[in-house]
Nucleic acid binder design. Structure first.
Lengths: 328, 328
DNA sequence: AGTGGGTCTGAAAACCTTTACATCGCGTTT
DNA sequence: AAACGCGATGTAAAGGTTTTCAGACCCACT
C-alpha cells in the first residue's frame, strides 16, 4: 500500500541502499544516479517510514516540551519559538501541559523521555532531586530555571530589575514594594534576589509583601497589603499579578500611576492592551524557546560536553503604569 | 543496552510472543504466566520500543494538532482539553503553530499527517479545496469550522447570539452594531449569520461595521466607526476585539456601559480581569478539545463511518460591560 | 479408545530502513 | 605491468515488536 524504498529503487534501477544514500548523504552518490533517484522519489511521492528509520538509528526526530500551564500567557511565546526552531532542524515537538502539578510533571517527563531525542523543560516545578533522578540518558535543557550542572536558558532578572529600579528612582520613588510569586518558584527567588541587590545598591527601601499565586487573583489579594506598606511604587512577580494589583487599585479608586506606580515582569501581550498600560520588564520569550532548542540540538550531537547555558537579556518597557512619585 | 522483549522473555522463561501477549492481550495468556511476565517486566523496567511497534502495526500512538496561533488566548484552552483527553487514551500530541499562514498550514498538515494516527485541525485557515486535498487517509477532525462531510466540533453561535441579543433587548437596546472578524473566517460568518437571524427575529436593528483583524488593534480601529453608527450596543467578533473597542472608548471618554454596551465572544480569561469586565459569550474551549479527540478516536477505530459531528453549547457571561441603554 | 475442540504457547515471518562489508571497475603509482 | 587505492554501488544483516500459523496439551464427548 504505502510506497517503500524498494519501489523507488526498482523504478530508479538501483538498490535500496543507493536510494537511502542519495537521500541522506547525497555527496556519496554519483550526480547522475542521484538525479534518477530524486525523480523516482518525486514520481512515487515517497517519504521514508519514520518508525523503520527510528528502529535502526535509535532516533525519533522528536523533541518534547513540558510546560506547567499553557493558559499562562508566558508560555505560548516560548512554545512558538521552540516550534519554529525545531521545525527548521526537522524535528517535531511533543507538547505536554502538567497543570502545575509537580508529580504529574515527573511522570510525564519519564514517559515522554522515551519517545523523544531530547527534552525542554520550561519553568519546571518539580524538586531538584526529582529533576536529577528523572533524567535518564535523554538530553535535557531547562528553561527559566537554573540547577547545578544542568544546561539551561534563563533571563537576566538582575539586569531587568536594575532597569526597573533605575526608572523608578529617576521618577523619585524611594520606597518600593515587591509582591512575590510562589516561594518555591525558582524565578521568583531569582527576581527577588535581583531586586534586593539592586535596591540595596541604589539606596531604596524594599518592602516584601508576601507571596501570592502567580495569577490575577494573587495580585488582587496583595493590593491592599501594598497600600498598607506605604510604598509609592510596586514591582510584581509577573504581569498577571501586576494586572490584578491594578484592578484592585482601580476598584479602590487609587490612581495608577498618580498615586502608585506599578511594574510587572514578562511583557505578556495583554500588558500593552490594558488601561493604564503596564510598564514591565520584557523577557524575550520566543527567543528563549529558540535558544533552548539550539542548546538541546548541540547537546544531542555532543552528549559528552555539558553544553553552555545562556542568560538572555531583558528590557524594561516603559508604559503608562509608572509615573513620578507623589509628594507625600 | 536497552532492555528488550527478549530479555523479559528469558527472565520469565517464556517466548517473546508470550510476553507481547501478556502485555497487549492479557486475557489470552494464563494467569500464572501473565504474573511471571509482569514481574519480569517490572524487574527489568521494560517498556516496549515504540518504533518497532509502529513499524509493524503501522500506528504511531501520536495525534497531531494544528492551530493558527498559540498566542491567541482562545487556543491554549483547547490545547489543554486535547492534551488531557489524548493522555487518557495513551496518545501523545504533536502541536504545530502555523502563524496564521494558510499555506504553511497546508504543508504542515501534509508533513504532520505522516507521523500521526489522526489530526485535529483547530480553526483551520486554509481553503476548502486545500482542506480536502490535504487529507490523505489520515483521520481528521475539524474544530471550530464546518465543511461538508467532514467530522467537526463547533460551537452554537446562534444560541450564543440569541442569549446576547435577548440580554441587550431586555436592557432596552434596539440598535446594535457588529464588528466583524476576517471576512474569510468561517467562525466570523457563522457568528454573523447567527446575529442576523436573531436580530431579525427580535426586531432589532443590526449595523455591520466592517471587518477587522481579530486582534486588539482591530477593535481599536473599529471603535470610532461604532460610535458613528449611533448604536447603543456593540457585539464584537471576539473578546480581544471587544477589549480593543473598550480601550479606545476609554481613550475617548465614552463610558462603558453607561453610554455603550459591549459584548465579546469566547470568554478568554482576560475578559474577567479588565475594567469594566467583559460581558461575553463563553465557548467551552477545553471541552471542545476533549470532544475533538473523542471524535477522532472514534474515527480512527471505524474509519469507514464518517463520525458524528457535534455542536457545543454556549453561554452568555454577563459582566460589567453591558448595562441599560442610554436615553437618547 | 479415538476424535474433536479448546486453550495456551512457541517458532518464524514480516514491517522498512540503515549500515557494515563486499564487490567491481578504473585510474594512478611504483 | 602489476599492485594499489579509491569511488560507486550492491548484498545482507540488524534493529524490536507483532502476528500468523502451527504445535502441544488437556478435556470431553462419542
Amino acid at each position: 500500500m504505502a510506497v517503500t524504498i524498494k519501489d523507488v529503487a526498482r523504478l530508479a534501477g538501483v538498490s535500496p541502499a543507493t536510494v537511502c544514500r542519495a537521500l541522506s548523504t547525497p555527496e556519496r552518490v554519483k550526480t547522475e544516479t542521484r538525479e534518477r533517484v530524486r525523480r523516482a522519489v518525486d514520481d512515487l511521492g515517497y517519504s521514508p517510514n519514520r518508525a523503520a528509520r527510528g528502529l535502526i538509528t535509535g532516533r525519533t526526530g522528536n523533541i518534547g516540551l513540558v510546560v506547567p500551564d499553557l493558559a499562562n500567557p508566558f508560555f505560548p511565546g516560548v512554545v512558538k519559538g521552540i516550534q519554529a526552531r525545531a521545525r527548521e532542524a526537522d524535528y517535531s515537538v511533543f507538547v505536554a501541559d502538567t497543570d502545575e502539578d509537580p508529580s504529574a510533571e515527573a511522570s510525564l517527563v519519564r514517559s515522554l523521555g522515551k519517545q523523544v531525542d531530547g527534552l525542554v523543560l520550561c519553568s519546571p516545578r518539580m524538586s531538584e532531586e526529582d529533576l536529577r533522578s528523572v533524567v535518564g540518558d535523554t538530553p535535557l535543557v531547562l528553561l527559566n530555571r537554573r540547577v547545578d550542572q544542568m544546561p539551561a536558558i534563563t533571563f537576566d532578572s538582575l539586569g531587568g530589575m536594575r532597569q526597573a529600579i533605575a526608572h523608578l528612582m529617576a521618577l523619585g520613588h524611594r520606597r518600593i514594594a515587591y509582591v512575590g510569586g510562589p516561594r518555591t518558584s525558582w524565578s521568583n527567588r531569582d527576581r527577588l534576589n535581583g531586586l534586593r541587590t539592586v535596591t540595596a545598591a541604589a539606596g531604596a527601601d524594599l518592602v516584601e509583601v508576601g507571596n501570592v499565586l502567580p495569577q490575577f487573583s494573587g495580585g488582587v489579594a496583595a493590593a491592599d497589603l501594598v497600600l498598607a506598606a506605604e510604598a509609592t511604587a510596586v514591582v510584581a512577580y509577573n504581569d498577571v499579578v501586576a494586572l490584578g494589583l491594578i484592578s484592585r487599585f482601580a476598584a479602590r479608586s487609587i490612581s495608577v500611576p498618580d498615586r502608585l506606580s506599578v511594574i510587572g515582569f514578562d511583557d505578556i501581550s495583554m500588558s500593552a492592551m490594558v488601561h493604564p498600560s503596564l510598564t514591565t520588564v520584557a523577557l524575550p520569550m520566543e527567543l528563549s524557546g529558540r535558544a533552548g532548542v539550539d542548546l538541546l540540538l548541540q547537546l544531542m550531537q555532543h552528549p559528552d560536553q555539558s553544553g553552555t547555558s545562556r542568560e538572555l537579556e531583558t528590557h524594561l518597557m516603559v508604559r503608562g503604569s509608572t509615573g513620578p512619585a507623589p509628594r507625600i
